[in-house]
Design a protein around this nucleic acid. Structure first.
Length: 775
DNA sequence: TACCAGAGGAG
DNA sequence: AAATCCTCTGGTA
């Protein structure tokens, strides 16, 4: 690999767009230019393409108009390719062309120019980047906040920290005089110079990928505002351009030319399923250990005091943040190199895409190679119609509530992707003329898909799945752990893409949206799970539970486990014989014991004694830790120790502890997210009430998306909301014991204990004694 | 008691 | 800017 493509954009020279490609080579950055790529789109004729072509000739801004054939959903069509000189001219020109009497519509006029270039030239960013061993650096700012609130106009940046994957860690501070002997600290008297340090460091260390945590929405906007106040620029681009901030819906995105900026916050939110996404939470999830943390008032007093020991705390904290970012980057960046390659767009852009956009750019790239016309993005009214017309989803079995022993779990491997490729589920294959009713793949809801040709989307999905199998095979054989890791990341990326295909068909903003496809996929899914349940029952199994693509079974008679397993294998083989070739029911494992509460809420213990909990409070972030922990202990007592008495004692002891008033607030805090602006709530729950109070009294600002961490206090009030206060405003011990006993611990544990009634023989009558009154 | 809004999980 | 199904709480009438 001679060079790696990092970025693509265009500049304007004499009114003409010039593409720039940013390559990293062994000798540094190289910018290649292409002056010969012109913006274009397709005009679709009402009737005759040559008539439309004639109408287009001589129109101002039309450089060239030529008839050519493209493949549409309805088959080959003649279209007119319209070229113009500059991307900025496209919006007005496409409107004008679209209004011509001979023109039905325009297509592919809504693809950003630099992305269009990468697609048309089939260039792949990040190809071979691993061999280059790129320099990844993290940055972070601290602001001294003596006023308790943050005001970018008033409060300067006091610290700027930096760490990279070469072992450099340092921090620039807004203090003139040396305080510490720590060689990592640079003392800088002016904020202007402090801000400029970022650009100097990035250049000095020749950073390839700059990362941060929530840098899009905090650090970069803050730095840019402070830079403006200080009349300076934040030069980070390899062409010496400043970092650029873009409004993207509700959020901001920031981009650097050439070297790529990745905000790990958005990356991590997609990749990990954890209750909270603060930097320390994510670091703990990855590293398995806690990160140094400081409270806001500690930070303020340490900065104000200026004592060496206090200042050292600040330095350590600030550096621990950027070092944590490097740890996170090291674990997630490989997958994002791969996603950038699959999506075919620069890392900075692909890392900020959701699943829908990723699928779309992947499909657009494939469509180009097959001369397929890319459908337009839907207009607002169409999006509204799609949203107002949801697609029926999966089937969930009402569980046989209570305790069960010797449970077997089966599930369909990649159910939805395998349905798509097995039945050729593709918008272009819908209701074809070439197949009779009998010949076509007819979905349970009556949609017919061609059985003679193969759809473009169903085919690329098949290729993805086959590629993944091939890579997994190579991965297994590979001995070198580093190469193994790369294969693993490749197969993960393909899995992510394949699993997004169904969601994409039902995504209201999708170009290739297809209600018929989405409904057919879930329709087939429901059919297969229903048939599997029937077959299991016919084979003598009891179906305890099932959801979408999984079934939990048990054999009701008391026969040896070995015989049950044999019957299970026979059942599975029979099911698989009937299934299309790409589909497969797999045996996932067995569980000695489980308790099923309701749909999507149950717990299982495996052969090693490991507890799996689904949907119950233990798994929810909007329940207090004390309720979650007690529920988990009770589940273990029942499923692992088979000892309901122990469960009862756990609950009694916890309640005593709560009553004593000595439970730390950490175990009582409830985390609930604001999912809209505070003024937009019709119903005011406790978290909203707590947030409102804190905003009124403390001058804090909780916007859309903020996590509210509150305590139900012992303060007077009728509603729970009256007693709810954000944790920062509550003293230890100031909590409402009755609330935590009656509304947190008891509901959580009783849900589990009440299920015991279903197997009284095992409980030897003890279940009956455990009612709410006994406590 | 019945109903709604809201949150967050499962697959 | 991927989808739907589902349970449960707190507030209100």
């Amino acid at each position: 690999m001679e060079k790696v493509l990092f970025d693509c954009d265009y500049t304007t020279v004499d009114g003409k767009a010039v593409i720039r490609l940013f390559y990293k080579t062994k000798n540094g950055w190289e910018i290649e230019r292409d002056e010969n790529f012109t913006p274009y789109f397709y005009a679709i004729p009402k009737t005759d393409a040559s008539e439309l072509e004639k109408d287009l000739r001589g129109i101002e801004d039309v450089l060239k108009a030529s008839v050519l054939e493209k493949n549409s959903v309805k088959g080959p069509v003649n279209v007119v390719r319209v070229e113009t000189s500059h991307p900025a001219k496209v919006p007005s020109l496409r409107e004008f062309v679209g209004e011509l009497p001979s023109c039905a519509t325009v297509m592919e006029a809504d693809i950003p120019f630099h992305r269009r270039y990468l697609i048309d030239k089939q260039l792949i960013p990040m190809q071979g980047v691993e061999e280059f061993n790129p320099t990844i650096a993290a940055f972070d700012i601290e602001v001294y906040l003596p006023h308790g609130s943050i005001d970018v106009k008033r409060d300067p940046v006091t610290m700027l920290s930096y760490a990279d994957n070469r072992g450099v860690s340092k921090v620039a501070v807004l203090k003139e005089k040396k305080i510490l002997d720590d060689p990592r600290v640079e003392y800088i008297g002016s904020e202007k110079k402090l801000l400029e340090k970022l650009g100097q460091w990035v250049k000095e260390h020749d950073v390839d990928i700059l990362v941060g945590y929530n840098t899009d929405n905090f650090d970069v906007p803050y730095i840019l505002e402070r830079a403006e106040i200080n009349k300076t620029n934040i030069i980070l681009g390899v062409d010496d351009s400043p970092i650029r901030l873009k409004q993207a819906g509700m959020n901001k995105e920031s981009y650097i030319k050439g070297r790529q900026h990745v905000d790990l916050y958005s990356v991590v939110r997609q990749l990990f399923n954890i209750p909270r996404y603060r930097l320390e939470d994510v670091y703990e999830e990855i590293a398995g250990k806690e990160k140094k943390d400081l409270e806001l008032d500690e930070m303020n007093s340490y900065w104000a005091s200026g004592k060496p020991e206090d200042f050292q705390q600040l330095v350590d904290y600030s550096i621990s943040d950027v070092e944590a970012c490097i740890t996170i980057a090291n674990t997630v960046i490989g997958l994002h190199y791969e996603l950038s390659r699959i999506v075919g767009q620069p890392l900075g852009e692909s890392s900020r895409m959701g699943s829908g956009m990723r699928v779309e750019y992947f499909l657009m790239r494939k469509a180009f190679t097959q001369n397929i016309l890319v459908p337009n993005k839907p207009v607002q009214g169409v999006v509204g119609d799609r949203l107002g017309n949801p697609v029926k989803g999966a089937f969930v079995v009402d569980p046989d509530k209570g305790i069960h022993d010797n449970i077997l779990l089966f599930d369909f491997r990649s159910l939805y992707p395998s349905i798509i490729i097995s039945h050729n589920v593709d918008p272009a294959m819908l209701d074809c003329d070439c197949c009779t009713k009998e010949e076509a793949n007819t979905s349970p809801n009556g949609h017919r898909f061609c059985a003679k040709r193969k759809g473009f989307i169903s085919t690329v999905l098949r290729e993805i799945i086959e590629k993944r199998i091939e890579i997994k095979g190579k991965m297994k054989k590979e001995a070198d752990p580093q190469k193994k890791k790369i294969y693993d990341v490749q197969q993960q990326a393909l899995k992510i893409l394949a699993n997004s295909a169904y969601g994409y068909y039902g995504f209201a903003m999708a170009r290739w949206y297809s209600r018929e496809c989405a409904a057919s996929i879930t329709g087939w899914g429901r059919k297969y799970i229903h048939e599997t349940i029937e077959d299991a029952e016919k084979a003598g199994f009891q179906v305890i539970y099932g959801d979408t693509d999984s079934v939990y079974l048990k054999y009701p008679k008391d026969i040896p486990l070995k015989e049950i397993e044999e019957k299970a294998i026979t059942f599975m083989k029979d099911v698989n014989k009937k299934l299309p070739e790409a589909m497969e029911l797999e045996f996932e494992g067995s569980y000695p014991r489980g308790v099923f509460i309701t749909k999507k809420r149950y717990a299982l213990i495996d052969g090693e004694g490991k507890l799996t909990v689904k949907g119950l409070e233990t798994r929810r972030r909007d329940w207090a830790e004390i309720a979650k922990k007690t529920q988990e202990d009770v589940l273990n007592a029942i499923l692992k120790d088979k000892n309901p008495e122990k469960a009862a004692n756990i609950v009694k002891a916890t309640i005593e502890r709560v009553k004593s008033g000595k439970v730390p607030l950490d175990e009582l805090v409830i985390h609930t997210q604001l999912t809209r602006k505070i003024g937009d709530y019709v119903a005011e729950g406790p978290h909203v009430a707590a947030a409102k109070k804190a905003m009124k009294e403390g001058g804090q600002d909780f916007g859309d998306g903020s996590m509210i961490s509150y305590i139900v206090t012992s303060r007077p009030g009728k509603k729970i909301g009256d007693k709810a206060e954000i944790i920062e405003n509550v003293k230890e011990g100031e909590y409402d014991s009755d609330y935590y006993i009656n509304n947190q611990i008891l509901p959580a544990v009783m849900r589990v204990l009440e299920a015991l009634d279903y197997s009284e023989d095992e409980l030897k009558g003890k279940g009956k004694q455990m009612s709410l009154g006994d406590w």
